[in-house]
Write a protein that binds this DNA or RNA. Structure first.
Lengths: 228, 228
DNA sequence: AGTTGATTGAAACGCCTGTTTGAAACAGGC
DNA sequence: GCCTGTTTCAAACAGGCGTTTCAATCAACT
């Protein structure tokens, strides 16, 4: 629950002579991502940023505006960090679906390490604030449209848009669970299984196979064939 | 001194809303669900419960223990409120899968309206605290086991446990998305479509069909609904 | 009645919060 | 040097927080 705040939780942001404004933005993003808006304190943020408490109000006015700015900052950084694949024309839809899912999982779970930017955005998704609408329009909706287009190709343009959207949400939901409820998933699945099967690449393969089978494009899930 | 409640057996059966302890528990659950642990205040809780501020510490010791108790209380209430179906022996696995999904969606989204108990539990799932492990063991894991067993039947016992668990998580993830990220879903889907297709019964049919198709038990998605 | 122990109540205690203050430090142009 | 504008700093502010105190109240038993 972490009501007691450890003040040494994050090492102070390196004072590499950057703009104090940027240092605050960076520290604030990490702090907000970790503790949420209410529980994060401007004192901890300033401590991590290596600036005086007054700096937040000097540069951003108040805590709320600092929060909004840091969400936008994080979101822009993350978009540049993990862009969508750029498929050459003629790439099979199944391949594109797999790449898309792998990309989404990579962005959410992170091959390298769970990035604080995603945590911050996840908070917005789960409990929207003013910054959320911008996030959806600039970042989520375009990705959603790409996925719908892939599914449309995959189904041979036989399904209506609403049905495509439902399938798209089914795919997103599967990835989303691991990001949002990862701790609970870890409690439900044996540790060794978690380490071997619930990694981004394995999950991408599973989700893709699941979708292809459901669409009748691939075979049913592994193993024996069944009589309908 | 923190006096623990002496003996529940000697009191003349608490008249539901008259027991201060229960009133606090009720108010606390709603307040925690709405604002989260950190942002909820014991003063607001006591105001809503119509008791003195000191009552929280008198009955529960401190805020944290009140929180844990209220989570457990809400969880127990919700389980009794929407219990799992009790299938007669011989019920087809496909039927049971549909019922299970419908039950889960009903519990999460609420046929009537999203109850505060679910919000409270969702907070625990998304950002686990001490109360989470208990929640998983008492409530989530048994449900998870039921789903896995259904899928095992459905696959004709041809799939290994880890694979069954992955499929189960895929199903849960689809329901979970609507509960946890419902606001964003509402932004991505046209309003009329949301009202007609993204209702608990419609979603239950979709998720079930999706799973059956993936398992090769039903036809691929373009087909018609198989479950009554 | 009187005594006892469990509950309640209003007020206060520290502590921590976001924010403000006013002076000090710094820069660059004259 | 002086002046001017921007940036930093320690300190303080007012308010809210969880928690504690202690006297008052209540219910039940002797």
């Amino acid at each position: 629950m972490a009501t007691v705040r450890s003040h040494a939780e994050h090492e102070p942001v390196p004072k590499t002579a950057e703009d104090p404004r940027d240092r605050i933005l960076l520290a604030a993003g990490q702090e907000f991502a970790e503790h949420g808006y209410e529980a994060a304190t401007v004192r901890d943020i300033c401590l991590a940023a290596g600036v005086n408490v007054a700096a937040v109000n000097y540069y951003f006015g108040d805590k709320r505006r600092l929060y909004i700015e840091s969400v936008k900052h994080a979101h822009e950084a993350r978009v540049k960090q993990v862009p969508l694949p750029d498929w050459p024309p003629g790439t099979p839809a199944a391949q594109r679906l797999h790449d898309f899912v792998a990309n989404m999982l990579e962005r959410m779970l992170g091959f390298s390490q769970p990035p604080w930017q995603v945590r911050l955005m996840m908070r917005e998704v789960l409990h929207p604030t003013d910054a959320c609408r911008e996030l959806v329009e600039d970042y989520i909706r375009p990705h959603f449209a790409v996925l719908v287009a892939i599914l449309d190709d995959l189904a041979g343009h036989t399904l209506a848009e609403p049905e495509l959207r439902r399938i798209a949400l089914s795919i997103i939901g599967q990835c989303f669970l691991y990001r949002a409820a990862g701790d609970v998933v870890a409690m439900l699945v044996p540790a060794d299984e978690l380490a071997s099967l619930h990694t981004p690449p394995q999950l991408a393969a599973h989700v893709t196979r699941y979708a292809l089978a459901a669409l009748g494009v691939g075979r049913p899930l592994p193993g024996k064939e069944r009589i309908p």
